[in-house]
Amino acid sequence: MLTSIVVLFTLAQAPTASPAAPAPQRPSQASPAAQSTPKRASNETYPAEQVRAGATMFAAQCGFCHGRDATGGQTGPDLTRSTLVAEDARGDKIIPVVRTGRPDKGMPPFNLSDADLAALVAFIHDQQIKAESQQGGRRAVDESDLQTGDARAGQAFFNGAGGCARCHSPSGDLADVAARLKGLELLQRMLYPSGRGGARTPAKATVTLASGQAITGRLAYRDEFLIAIKDAEGWQRSWRTSDVKVTIDDPLEAHAALLPKYTDTDMHNVLAYLQTLRQAVKP
């Protein structure tokens, strides 16, 4: 029955919706919590009254996803560690996101007055300023928390039971993975690379028409009734699934298949092994 998984790829920093259909209520699959607080572009401070108004507004409208203190909730990332917030100056980056939402990641658009938006921006920046001076005691995962594995055992799992070596190479695609990705982000992408940081590894779809013509491209969208690919020229093309034969080549399926098999020890061991891969080895 029926259909195989819909694979949605989104880039965390992409300001526009992915070509995939909006997926309401889907939790963001990645969190920037592994990052330390990014360096702020602006030293602006905000009046206490505006921050207070923003706190109220934030709690009501944003808190359920981003946490009442903006440090992240069940479906929304920690904004105090957000690069976008750090790069924002008086709302130039935050306000467009609030107004248009990020439908690809389940964030709805918000229709707020300019004063409310300004207060929100003030509160979010104030929380980020506080976060810079207050690293302890927060709901965060630090790189130092993730050092419990055995790299040698992880290497054995990588080459053996885990089957990682079938697609990955410590001297190839993963040669400098520990230099590119750290802490929680490395762990998350190791478990299931849902698109944050690093290169995207999109699934390919081959659509065979009734005429026998086969078209291959990056999988752009799939549900039970529709298949869409991005073709070589960048056009999205779609067909009714009932009219065509579809083959999906999704390298990430191996990651999903591993999730029920990992023990926590395996997981920490493979992470420890990946953390040793810091240098690109040039052939």
């Binding site: 995962v141 999903a256 999730l259």
Partner: peptide, 12 residues
């Protein structure tokens, strides 16, 4: 309150 952190990895 939450007193911890958790992150979705994958769902179907």
């Amino acid at each position: 309150g939450w007193a911890g952190a958790d992150y979705g990895v994958y769902s179907k």
